[in-house]
């Protein structure tokens, strides 16, 4: 039962990744694309956690934590660049 639900969840999260990638390509303005990138890294964390349960390996958490840190820093840097024209003033 757990294996089946993990497969369904992986299919759903993969569809979510595809949709946020569509928004990344399509998005009319720059903040839409930043939001799509933000959603993409969060979906990647979800996929990594699901793979960790599926394979029974605890190695994936460090990768998920690193992606969370770097993704947040990337979002903040892109927003600061659009807001102020500079990242580190």
């Amino acid at each position: 039962m757990l294996a089946i639900s993990i497969q369904i969840a992986l299919a759903l999260v993969t569809a979510a990744v595809a949709m946020s990638f569509w928004r990344l390509l399509r998005g009319p303005d720059a903040p839409d694309r930043i939001l799509a990138l933000d959603t993409l890294y969060i979906n990647t964390i979800a996929i990594l956690v699901l793979f960790g349960i599926h394979l029974g390996s605890a190695l994936f958490f460090e990768a998920a934590l690193l992606i969370a840190l770097m993704g947040f820093i990337g979002t903040v840097a892109l927003c600061k660049y659009l807001l102020r024209g500079d990242i580190i003033e």
Binding site: L2, L12, A15, A16, M19
Partner: peptide, 26 residues
């Protein structure tokens, strides 16, 4: 219980990205 939590999380992630695609406004 684990299957319920996993399916809930996956459905909410899916709905979030669906909102990203379907909604009209930034």
């Amino acid at each position: 219980f684990l299957s319920f939590l996993i399916l809930t999380g996956a459905i909410f992630t899916f709905i979030g990205s669906l909102g990203l695609v379907r909604l009209k406004d930034m």
